[in-house]
């Protein structure tokens, strides 16, 4: 039934857009420009590696449960691994942010890459805070009772109830990780589609054409 004059299906538009903006040689490149050979370009992938470790240890903790990670040696180890991978995740992400800020990485139509990075940063903070609330120890009890006053004072305590362990646990292990995962995926795909931003002082044909 299809003819050449028929209106294109959404899946056709999606395929053509994908092929135009992110062909497979851009998606899986085996070379990078010379300026990428610098330590400052490693912090993005270091952040991703930390995120992978966070997800892996987080899944392990979820399957074993609180009595395991509070009461066994392996549980303590995995719990610490989860905690420290979060610390390094934020350290690497902040250094990545500084590097990209000072090289004005939103140049060359990379605004969405910058915005998704910022969203991932804010979302990660929310995820980390809910993590502190679900440790199931006196620390999390103290933090939640301090935090509830803050949320109540701005009028959102009835919707976002930090003393509600079930709500915080589901946000931490299900909702927020999915959000972070999707934003991170979009961020990485945008980096692939647009390429790594060149240094400000580098002469670049692409940037010369579209500032």
């Amino acid at each position: 039934m299809s003819t050449s004059t028929e209106k294109e299906m959404w899946v056709t538009k999606l395929r053509k857009g994908w092929q135009k903006n992110l062909p497979v040689d851009k998606l899986l490149p085996d070379t990078q420009p010379a300026y990428v050979a610098s330590w400052i370009y490693l912090f993005g992938v270091a952040t991703l590696a930390s995120l992978g470790l966070i997800i892996a240890t987080g899944l392990w903790l979820s399957f074993e449960g609180a009595s395991w990670y509070h009461g066994s040696n392996v549980g303590h180890f995995v719990n610490s691994l989860h905690f420290w991978s979060v610390q390094f995740f934020f350290i690497f992400m902040v250094v990545h942010l500084w590097g990209k800020f000072w090289m004005a990485a939103w140049r060359g139509r990379r605004m969405l890459t910058w915005i998704t990075g910022a969203l991932a940063f804010v979302g990660s903070i929310a995820t980390a805070f809910t993590g502190y609330l679900v440790q199931s120890n006196f620390d999390s009890q103290w933090i939640s009772y301090e935090a509830k006053d803050g949320f109540n004072s701005v009028g959102i305590g009835s919707r976002f109830t930090v003393t509600n362990f079930g709500q915080m646990l589901l946000l931490h292990v299900a909702f927020l990780p999915v959000i972070i995962g999707v934003i991170t995926l979009i961020h990485v795909l945008l980096v692939r589609a647009k390429g790594v931003v060149p240094p400000i002082d580098a002469f670049n044909k692409e940037l010369g054409e579209r500032k």
Binding site: W39, I40, L42, I91, V95, G99
Partner: peptide
């Protein structure tokens, strides 16, 4: 530590 890491990443 993060500032030191940033500086090292730029100059090493």
């Amino acid at each position: 530590g993060m500032l030191v890491l940033f500086g090292l990443a730029l100059f090493l």
